[in-house]
Amino acid sequence: MSQAAIRVEHLSKSFGAVRAVRDLSLVVQHGEIFGLLGSNGAGKTTTIRMILDLIKPDAGEISVLGGPMSEQTKARIGYLPEERGLYRDMKAWDTLLFLAQLKGLSMAEARRRAERYLREVDLWDARDLKVEAYSRGMGQKLQFVAAALHEPDLVIIDEPFSGLDPINTQVIKQLVYRMRDQGAAVVMSTHQMHQVEEMCQRIMLVDKGTAMLHGELGEIRERFSTNTVEVTLQGEIESVPGVQRLERRDGGYRMQLAPGTAPEDVLRALVNLPDVRVQRFERVQTSLEEIFVQVVGHRVETGEDQPAEARR
């Protein structure tokens, strides 16, 4: 599995006058969770659908699991689409068996795995219920199981945690980690930045169909680092050597360091101040959301302001 799970080069797609994806290139490796970020309508889902051969690109090359999409490749892919949907009047159990067999599993193997997964996500007792009787969270878990049941080499999950409570979010996360640990490539498309920060090694931030950021999450954060520290202390301070701007925040202080000043210089200065006792000293990491806002220029919203075709 040395080759990339996904290799996309110069991908473009337009819907009428709307350019949904523009010259987008990315590589996803096996054994990693890759975050595809962007507000709704940014072009994430269109990119995913092109990767999955659900829609054809106007331009660009796509290689999935070592080549162009084929029927054999499809059997090695798991997909949780943003548009959730299963056959409402079908039993959950029958749904899983049907979808697993379409992915090439034998009936016996499908049954064995369906039982294991349903027990893991706590849906075993609800297996004979029709999908329409499931709550949103249950349906979400069921659909995730459908995407994972055949233990694919590539899993694409579009907004996997929307509608899940914290406990179920944890259950799904563990399954995602397990797939990654078993060598699968996981592409997670979301606009929930905190989930990406927690789970992804590499990301691509897309806005209006264009890749705005692409690379290792740590490197990106470093690049957007603001050289700021947060301090909680006993005592009062009005100025600190090396600190350009000092402001009170949440019972402590937020300090913007002067160019060339290292955080440890400020810590040393604080410790040496009379009548001051440092209780907490922390370098502020720029959050992904802040980076996103800086890059895209607006806050992450649910994005109903985009044209319908662009969201496709």
């Binding site: 659908r49 999955l52 659900l54 029927e71 499809k74 059997a75 892919i77 997909y79 689409p81 548009e83 959730r84 949907g85 299963l86 056959y87 409402r88 979808l99 379409l102 992915k103 659909q143 459908a146 995407a147």
Partner: peptide, 12 residues
């Protein structure tokens, strides 16, 4: 029922 997108990633 929006099942199409899942099914079409498995068959033609």
């Amino acid at each position: 029922e929006r099942a199409m997108e899942i099914v079409l990633t498995s068959l033609r």
